[in-house]
Every structure is written in structure tokens, then in C-alpha cells.
């Protein structure tokens, strides 16, 4: 007898499998449409010189965009600035967040309120925070310059926070550290709270001092979390755009360079080549990190 003529036997397993597929489908379709397809299209676009007028055809330039990118001094300059920015902000926000977490990991009156207050800069919209920072640091009637120059007399003249490239880098780093340290704070605090208090009691009985306790107990316990905070923050800050672009024109992070190339210079071909190279850099770093971690575990 022909098997095909029998009604299909639907086991529970098969039904679940079908349902699972149906449930996953919208997510897959969306991720495919808004992420994977654009990624593929971006790679394709990086070999073309897209016409500004959509009615006109694009011109194939092969590796031309990449050649232009790799011979562009501006690209290397912004890579350098970006690495400096990532190093400073990741170190700064993780250290500040970690220190704040250690301070918060005690019982004291008003702890809940302090915690909520500390999260404010992380929650508040970038645009709001940027406006206040511009107001605080402006060269005519800014409070920061007033305190530094007239009140405390630390500096002889008002620094040009928004026009001097080096000072602008300081400014955007300070802004980012202030804005994102709560992320490190929450992550590290929750791992501190997961440490069994009996370990500390045992250490106290053994007569261990605070530094030994920190180095031998606390640090090893929070290190995995610190590592993932550093990894995530490095990736996020490598792609940073909005905060810096809105604060000053003087810090050409790679994200800002990409944005300007695409939408100020209208060089979409070069911009898509930048995207591809950036993604390769991050992918390379993540793969190298993952394989090193694997090697250590074995």
C-alpha cells in the first residue's frame, strides 16, 4: 500500500516542532529583513559607486572603495582616536562603576535612593544630557569654567572644551564615563551580592586584612563579570556615535567618520566599505578573545 495515501500521523513531538517553527518565524523574518539582508547588501554596496540619483544605475568599482579607504589618512586618524576613546572610557567607567559598587555593597540608610539616583545618568536620554553638558562647559557663562578659573583659580584662562581637539576628547570621555558607569555598577554590584557571606566570615576568623580579602575573595569572584562588562562596553564604545556627534565636532570617532562620509559627503560606497572593515575588526577581536579564553580553560 502506498504510504502517501495514509493520513499523516502527527505525534506530539512533530506538532511541537511545527509550533516552534511558527513561533520563531516572525523573529527570524525580522532579523533577516532588518539585519542579515542589510549586512549582505552592505557588502555588495561596498564594491559599487552608488548613484546619488536613484533613477541612475550604480557603477561597479570592485575594490576601489577599499583602496580609497586604506589610503585615506582620515581613516587612520579616526581609528587612532577611537582606540584612545575606547581605552579611556572603558577603563574609566569600569573602575568608577566598580568602586561605586564596592561602596554600595553595604547596608546604610538611604541605600535604595542612592542606587536609583546613581542610575539616573544611564537612564536619561542622551539628547537631554548633552544639552546640560553644553551649558555646563560653554565658554561664556559655563559653571565648570567659572569654578576652574574664577572660583578655584586652577586654570588661568577658560579652556576651549568644544574647539580644541584634545580638550574635546577629554570632554567626550568624561561625558561617556559619567553616562555609562552605572552599567558597570549594576553588573558588579549584583555579582558582589551573590558572594556567600560565610566566606567573608571565615576570612575574618583567619585574621585576613581588608586588602587580602579584596584580592583573594572579592576580586576573583567578580572578575568574570568585570570581563564581560569590559568586552561589551568596548564593542559598544567602538561604535559610539550619538553622544560624541552631538557634543562636539572635534572628535572624529570612527562612527562619526562613517556618518559624515555617508550623509555629509554622500559617499555611500566608501561608507559601506568602512562598515565592512569595522565589522571585521570587531569580529576579529571577539574571535581572538573567545579562542584565547577557550585555550585558558583547557
Amino acid at each position: 500500500m502506498n504510504q502517501a495515501t495514509l493520513p499523516p500521523i502527527k505525534t506530539l513531538e512533530a506538532r511541537n516542532r511545527r509550533l516552534g517553527f511558527i513561533f520563531v518565524l516572525p523573529a527570524l523574518v525580522l532579523i533577516g529583513a532588518v539585519i542579515l539582508y542589510p549586512v549582505g547588501y552592505n557588502i555588495y554596496l561596498s564594491f559599487w559607486k552608488p548613484a546619488l540619483n536613484p533613477a541612475k544605475p550604480d557603477t561597479l568599482v570592485g575594490l576601489g572603495n577599499y583602496a580609497r579607504l586604506l589610503s585615506d589618512p582620515e581613516f587612520y586618524a579616526s581609528l587612532g582616536v577611537t582606540f584612545a576613546y575606547v581605552a579611556i572610557t572603558v577603563a574609566g567607567s569600569t573602575l568608577l562603576g566598580g568602586a561605586a559598587a564596592l561602596l554600595m555593597n553595604r547596608r546604610f540608610p538611604g541605600r535604595k535612593l542612592a542606587r536609583s539616583a546613581l542610575l539616573l545618568s544611564y537612564v536619561s536620554p542622551v539628547i537631554s544630557s548633552v544639552f546640560v553638558w553644553i551649558y555646563l562647559f560653554n565658554g561664556l557663562y559655563g559653571m565648570i569654567d567659572y569654578v576652574l578659573v574664577d572660583a578655584l583659580k586652577i586654570l588661568p584662562v577658560a579652556p576651549q572644551w568644544f574647539d580644541n581637539p584634545a580638550l574635546s576628547l577629554v570632554l567626550v570621555c568624561l561625558f561617556d564615563i559619567w553616562r555609562v558607569f552605572p552599567f558597570a555598577l549594576i553588573m558588579i554590584l549584583s555579582s558582589l551580592q551573590a558572594i556567600d557571606s560565610s566566606v567573608y566570615e571565615a576570612a575574618a576568623i583567619d585574621g585576613a586584612g581588608p586588602w587580602t580579602v579584596f584580592r583573594r575573595i572579592t576580586l576573583p569572584e567578580i572578575l568574570p563579570v568585570v570581563a564581560s562588562v569590559v568586552t561589551l562596553r568596548s564593542i559598544w564604545n567602538f561604535y559610539k556615535f550619538e553622544d560624541v556627534y552631538l557634543l562636539t565636532k572635534q572628535v572624529p570617532l570612527i562612527g562619526v567618520y562613517l556618518y559624515r562620509t555617508a550623509f555629509t559627503v554622500n559617499d555611500l560606497g566608501l561608507a559601506s566599505a568602512i562598515s565592512v572593515v569595522l565589522f571585521l575588526i570587531i569580529m576579529g577581536a571577539v574571535v581572538a578573545l573567545a579562542s584565547r579564553n577557550k585555550g585558558e580553560r583547557v
Binding site: E13, N16, R17, L19, G20, F21, F23, V24, L28, I31, V34, I35, P38, V39, Y41, N42, L45, I235, W236, Y239, F241, G255, L258, Y259, A262, F263, L268, A271, S272, S275, L278, F279, I282, M283, V286
Partner: peptide
């Protein structure tokens, strides 16, 4: 639920984590 190819799909969504909006803004435009 048992989803065919679950493992690959899951690691795929992880890779997607590494995409930031700025990388996709040109093709999306």
C-alpha cells in the same frame, strides 16, 4: 520547544549582538 537548527539560530542571534545601528545605517538608508 524543539526548533530545528536551534543551536545555530541561537549563536546567530549572538552574532547579531555585535551589529550596531551605525554599521547598518547605509544599507538601510
Amino acid at each position: 520547544l524543539p526548533v530545528p537548527g536551534k543551536k545555530y539560530l541561537l549563536s546567530g542571534t549572538f552574532v547579531v549582538y555585535m551589529f550596531s545601528g551605525i554599521l547598518l545605517v547605509v544599507p538601510l538608508f
